[in-house]
Design a protein around this nucleic acid. Structure first.
Lengths: 211, 211
DNA sequence: TCCCTCTTTACAGCCCGTTTACAGTTAGTT
DNA sequence: AACTAACTGTAAACGGGCTGTAAAGAGGGA
């Protein structure tokens, strides 16, 4: 994925920092905004490629921001950040027109994957193929399918996310902490042993290919 | 379907935004208009391939707009947007001559399907086949009937719409929110559980083919 | 030998998807 | 207009599989 101009809008400094650090590390140009009005200004001014927009903001809601900028004819794709509870009912229209949403607490890898998906769908990015290949391993990001030597293997959601993260960082030593930070939700409060368990599951199902 | 020039005419900003975002995302060039007079100007000026025209407008009714432009010899096909009540009497005769109508509140998928149907009928589009085939599943979009291995199955309207949406996105992971946003009417305010229920109905009737 | 770390296996809780049942509403018929 | 049938949407019951923890097994280094 090419370098993108990303605007992160959230009132919680922790989230802003987490996202901006990760996005910057991924090679993007990041701007941040703590509230709705400021976000509108920055969107008009900076013309970002994508906006990460918290729904719950102190002044104007994320939906309000969206209405405002759409009314100005700005079609920048938006990735909404919503609380788990709001999800059920207020989702109407969130996934329309290339937009999408993730629920808090999210995992970093999920955010990155969604951004890629949006850029792919809206054609802004030069279709980096939605298939990841590492050796005899093949991951289809649309179908969330994994195959080894053409043979499909059945993975649980967490297993898939983990494998995807490993596959996007081949030939690289990753610490358990890094894996935990990327694959698990940011408020995960458990033992690191879970990483070891899941790596073990994967090795049994896809064979000892990477690490 | 090729890229089309679409004009969306509605006085409610929400509807305009919803439609323009979706249509743009589908690869079309979209212009919008908030009333009848402006719409007439834009139709003459832009010569769109199709017009999505609300019947109830602040100045001239959608029918008035139609009369006016037809009087000028403009034969652009029109998809009328009408309120649920108006349907029976006023809409009579609307479906002749390539025009059609949908009632508010509509679902996005229905709008897209109607546009495809119109373009197919008026021959502007290179007949993208009105039959969807996925594995042993066959969906006839003209007759709205579905067959598995040549055997007809009887589906309710909602079931048909859902199956159609799933069939047009094969081998792709779809979230409940995406399905809800595309298949159900835009003002649906209920639980997402309904998606699960209907998916279950489908699996019983067409067998576990896709997802 | 002991200790430390990585790997694997076992297991309990629980979340989530599936299915079924049911009430409310609509549509179609006589 | 009343009757019937069917469809939509909600809710509750069910079951399975996934998640996360803990403990046993295996290897290496000092």
């Amino acid at each position: 994925m090419e370098s993108l101009k990303v605007l992160v809008v959230d009132d919680e400094p922790n989230i802003r920092d987490l996202l901006s650090a990760s996005l910057r590390f991924a090679g993007h140009q990041v701007s941040v905004s703590p509230n709705g009005n400021d976000a509108i200004n920055k969107i008009v001014e900076l013309q970002p490629d994508i906006v990460l927009l918290d729904v719950m903001l102190p002044d104007i809601s994320g939906f309000g921001v969206t209405k405002k900028i759409r009314g100005m004819g700005i079609e920048t794709p938006i990735l909404f950040l919503t609380a788990r509870d709001d999800t059920e009912d207020k989702v109407a229209g969130l996934t329309v027109g290339g937009d999408d949403y993730v629920t808090k607490p999210f995992s970093l890898d999920e955010i990155m994957a969604r951004i890629s998906a949006i850029m792919r769908r809206t054609g802004k990015d030069a279709a980096p193929g939605s298939v990841i290949r590492v050796g005899e391993l093949e991951i289809n990001e649309d179908a969330h399918d994994v195959s080894v030597n053409g043979e499909l293997v059945d993975l649980s959601p967490t297993e898939y996310q983990l494998l995807r993260y490993l596959a996007t960082n081949p030939n690289r030593v990753l610490t358990k902490a890094q894996i935990l930070d990327h694959v698990w939700e940011y408020d995960f409060n458990g033992e690191m042993g879970i990483v070891e368990s899941y790596v073990s599951y994967l090795q049994q199902e896809v064979g000892p290919n990477l690490l």
